[in-house]
Structures are given as C-alpha cells and as structure tokens.
C-alpha cells in the first residue's frame, strides 16, 4: 500500500519533529540550569541568603558559570549553599575567591557573585571546596558597631556644645563668677563632666581606630568590602581628625581643670584674678581653643556624614530621630 506508506512516512516526520522540539527545549532549559555536562559542586556558608533560591545563577566576574543546587540551614547563624560550577571555568576561579549574594538588577532575582580574592593565588578551586563568603549580616554588624560609636560621638558633640555655650555666657558674667564660690563649684563640676565626655570621645576614637585597623587587616571581611581603598582612606582621615580634636579638647580640659583648681585653692578668687592678668588671658585662650576644637569636631562629624559609606546610616538616624520627635509631639 503505497498510500499508507507515504502517510506513515509523513506521520513519522511529524512525530520526530515534535519530539525534537521537546528534547531541544528540555536540553536548552536544562543546559542553562547546568543539569547536563561536567560540573563541580562547590559550597559556601552564609549568615543570610537574602531570598536566594535553588536554581539562581552563580556568576564569576559577571559571567554565568553555574547555578545554586541546594540551600540548607546548618544552624542559627550559618546557611550552607551548594552550587554547581561548569568544569571548564574551574581553572580560572581561584581558591581564595569570595562569594557574595546580590540582586541581579533592580527587580531581578538573587545571584551569587564570585569575586577574586585580594591576594594573588595560583591555587584554583576543586570540587567540594568551600569558598569564603560575605553575608549582608556582616555589613549590618559593622554598621551596628559604627552606630554605637556615632551615638557616643553625637553625645560628646552635644555636651561640648552645651559647655561651650555655658562658657561663652560665663565670659559675659565673669564678675559673678569671680565673686561667687558656688559658681566656681559649678565650673568644677562641669569640668568634671567635660573630662568624662572627653574620655568618652577618647573611647570612641579608639573604637573607630580599631575599626579602621580592622579594615586594614588582610583578608578581613571589611577589608574586602572596602577593597576600594579610597573610602577606607577617607574614613581614616576622619578618624585622625577626630583624634586630633579630641586631643585638643583634652588639653583644654586639663587647662580648665588647672584653672579651676587654682580658683578653689585660692581663698579670694577676685584677688587672684585682679593680681594675675595672665590667668585671664589664659582663660580667654582656652575658651577660644575649646570653641575651635568643637567646631572642628562638628566639621568632622559633618564629613563623616557626607562620606558615602555612612550616608545611609546617618539618614536612617535622622529618620529615627524625626519619628521619635513626631511621636513626642
């Protein structure tokens, strides 16, 4: 039956075409998800995966090299992410590469980005390796530390402003100050306060210093985050300025301390003031110094605020403050 044979032939072609389309679709979709071919399994431990899903892409320097295969919660702070990487790209990826999770575009899905380590390394990854990771949580931790630091700095600034204002006023009513012993005691206590504040400032500066040194640490988490050295330098600069102004404040405080001690030790303050004109000059100079120092600190804080890295943080602080004020009203 010739007719039937040609029908069978055409039917065969039709069915094969359909199956080919299906197989091709399965192959191309599967290929993208790295289901076929030679792959190596790599893993990395994150503190948080920010909605990463099985099947998300893994990129090395922006090129898709694999997909996420498995996400398991190991314990409350570590999540193990297994992903598969094409074998042919493996010789290019070094063992000290760092895995980060980021978003692919504004509304895109999450991806794992592999970036080369800071140091040159000749060792390439092998199947079963665990790569270092940076979680978003690490950055958040860092910001929390900075938060405390900044709170302290803010407190310090406010105190200094208050003191400077008080001293400024005191300058106008020097006569009262000189006659009144009570006032002298007030000065003394404010000096003590100032001292405390300064100590606070010193601690803050120390903390910042530590932070900075952390930034510098090789292979440290923050070190990589700030692998672009420019912002790091800027932060450092800010910290140095803060340190300097703190020093100045300290010096001023000790001067004031000395002065107030002298006031207390002397029976007649007025006498002393009248007899010793250098003291008045000293007080004047000290007050001017304090003013300058607090201004500088202000500037530094401002600079810190403008630093791109901390901008977000300060904005959030301002928002929280505004909200609190609104609540109070």
């Amino acid at each position: 039956m010739k007719n039937s044979n040609s029908q069978n032939l055409r039917l065969g072609i039709f069915i094969i075409a359909g199956i080919l389309i299906f197989v091709a679709a399965v192959y191309f979709i599967g290929n993208r998800q790295h289901l076929f071919g030679n792959n190596a399994r790599i893993s990395s431990v994150f503190k948080s995966v920010n909605g990463l899903q099985v099947g998300n892409n893994v990129r090395y320097a922006g090129v898709n090299v694999g997909t996420v295969r498995d996400i398991t919660i190991v314990n409350d702070t570590s999540i193990l992410v297994d992903f598969i990487i094409e074998e042919k790209t493996m010789p290019l990826i070094k063992r000290n590469s760092v895995a980060t999770i980021s978003s692919d575009g504004l509304v895109g899905s999450m991806i794992i980005n592999l970036t080369p380590g800071e140091e040159f390394s000749s060792e390439t990854i092998r199947g079963g390796d665990t790569l270092q990771s940076i979680s978003k949580v690490a950055t958040a931790d860092m910001l929390t530390t900075l938060n405390t630091t900044n709170e302290n700095a803010a407190l310090l600034t406010a105190d200094l402003l208050k003191i400077t204002a008080a001293i400024n006023e005191g300058k106008g009513t020097l006569g009262v100050l000189i006659r009144d012993e009570q006032m002298a005691q007030d000065i003394s206590s404010s000096m003590a306060e100032l001292k405390k504040t300064t100590q606070g400032a010193a601690i803050t500066v120390n903390k910042l210093n530590r932070l900075i040194s952390q930034f510098d640490m090789e292979n440290s988490v923050a070190g990589v985050l700030f692998k672009d050295t420019l912002p790091a330098l800027k932060v450092k600069e800010v910290i140095v300025s803060l340190e300097k102004s703190a020093g100045e404040i300290e010096q001023m405080t000790s001067n004031l301390n000395k002065f107030s001690e002298e006031i207390i030790n002397n029976e007649g303050v007025l006498d002393y003031v009248l007899h010793d004109s250098t003291l008045v000059e000293q007080i004047n100079a000290t007050l001017e110094n304090a003013e300058a120092a607090s201004k500088k600190l202000d500037e530094n804080m401002q600079a810190l605020q403008h630093n791109i890295l901390f901008r977000g943080y300060f904005k959030r602080q301002a928002r929280i403050k505004a909200r609190e004020e609104a609540k109070r009203d």
Binding site: S4, Q7, N8, R10, L11, F14, I15
Partner: peptide
Amino acid sequence: FREFLRQCYQMGNKSL
C-alpha cells in the same frame, strides 16, 4: 495499531 497510526496521521499531520 494500523487504525491508530491512520488516526495519528489524520489528527497530527492534517492539523499541522
């Protein structure tokens, strides 16, 4: 089977 193939042809190829 033959009728099945004939129907496959009628439905498949003829609808293509």
